[in-house]
Design a protein around this nucleic acid. Sequence first.
RNA 1: UGCCCGAUGGUGUAAUGGUAGCACAACUGACUCUGGAUCAGUUUGUCUAGGUUCGAAUCCUAGUCGGGCAGCCA
Length: 561
Amino acid sequence: MKNDPTSRPVDAGGAAPAKHFIRQIIEEDLRANTHGGRVVTRFPPEPNGYLHIGHAKAVCLNFGMAREYGGECHLRMDDTNPTKEEVEYIESIREDVRWLGFDWGKHFYYASDYFDKMYECAAQLIRKGKAYVCGLTAEEWSKDYRGAPPAPGRASPSRNRPPEESLALFEEMRAGKHPDGSLCVRAKIDMASPNLHLRDPVLYRILHATHPNTGDRWCIYPTYDFAHPLEDAFEGITHSLCTLEFEVHRPLYDWVIENLDGLPSRPRQYEFARLNLNYTVMSKRRLLELVQEGRVRGWDDPRMPTICGLRRRGYTPESIRAFTEVIGLTKYESLSDVARLEHGLRDDLNKRAARRLAVLNPLRVIIENADALPASVNAVNNPEDESAGTRPVPFSSELFIERDDFMENPPPKYFRLSPGGSVRLRYAGFLTCTRVEKDAIVCKWSPPEAGLKVKGTIHWVSAKHAVPAEIRLYDRLFTVEDPLAQAAAEGKDYHEFLNPDSLVTVAGFVEAGLADVRPAERFQFERLGYFCADPDSTPGKLVFNRTVTLKDPWAKAAGKR
RNA sequence: UGCCCGAUGGUGUAAUGGUAGCACAACUGACUCUGGAUCAGUUUGUCUAGGUUCGAAUCCUAGUCGGGCAGCCA
């Protein structure tokens, strides 16, 4: 088993993945034949927002375990609360899961598919005397009955209502004869339990709301605690993986399964720590705030940690999958470093992205010996991939180079251009600066054969041929690692930590060959970083997003000075 | 407050009673037509106190710290 290559996930960089506790549980179950040798998982989002990288961890875990152990993974919309869910999110969730590289096959479900069966299950519990219809309001319940541990709670006056009477009321609830909140179905468990979830939790509540899927067919809806174990049991889920906050719900999950007859399977719930990433926020509520307040341009703003944001930014699904594997899986909360995500992305793009020349902040260069110039030079498309070949790049006597690549008074160890100095022009010989004018520098060009001894190589584009492009430079959304925690600790509003420079738009130039890029095409602009064409980009007006910079020791050292 | 869960370098993790390892980050150096990539190397860690044991990151007890629950949200 240990050396079985088929049991390894695709993106673990060749190394065997860590046998985290979920893998151990699954392998133990397989050995013991706990679920008849089956592995069935599910990803159960509530369709009330867009998926973010935290969800990607759950998606990759659930689909990944199924793939790895020859099982299946269901995609299930957990739509048990019509007051919060909307159809518009459903397709975006499906798209994001697909983009991440997973396939649910025919196993796409809605919790609402099971409303009839769930109703029957509640009726069964009532008939058995294990549930009852309670007439207390939510407020009365929490104020006077539920109690606060260590003190026990008080029994609802309806707790011993005869099953026939509860059943009749339940039927009336369903028929719409009672207003929202007037009645609910409660499990009869233990009003003295130190676990609040076992003090007669609500199983069904009245909600006169139109459901995106079932319309007005129902006005009563099951709660998460009742619905989730049932959905899992109906679908034959073997390992129901959820986040840590559901740990205390597990006894109730088990209670529901154990007290119902006729369930087709016996699922088990296991909990893992959700993903936290530094320099961003992850909750749906905060993300929604950023969108609504106009701090970002939308859910798919490339600065957002949403899947659609990362996609637009230029992230590859492979790098996201690799990230979710490499951060591991534990039962304690931690804060992962985005540097890890970025590392995986560079690693991936370095091998795949075609190299191009682009200048973000142009400085005009006039070549004084224009007579001997080639019309074009041959550039390597990808030094990591010989099969990518080469391309011609037009050359001329007027170039743009990066403003950062020239200094009149350079500090020590500056390897670039300065008056009297020389540099290599990437793929195109050498430049020696002879004088500085107001809006340009004048240089002498030497061919590659000149073999000048230089320390640096700089990128360039031909001013006559280059195409103007809008280039959007992104940086982290927040200036501190954990904006919410720090705001709470310092009594501040987390908005104070918003990075004002998270988006800087510049007017640059890209080499002529890029004039007809299609949105989402990814490139490395040499010496600058990885970029991708934005959906806003058209042949007449190019727009690129900087996905991530290249590592830049010089810039870092400069930042320290 | 009660109950539940947890704690390993700066960060994320591995070691399942037997040499504390890996990755990211940081720092050196080599190489290089990307100050990229690659390669070599360095620095840094078992929350505390007791106990069990030939031997404890691992098991036990207590404490400390952190997280979670107290919606008819999920």
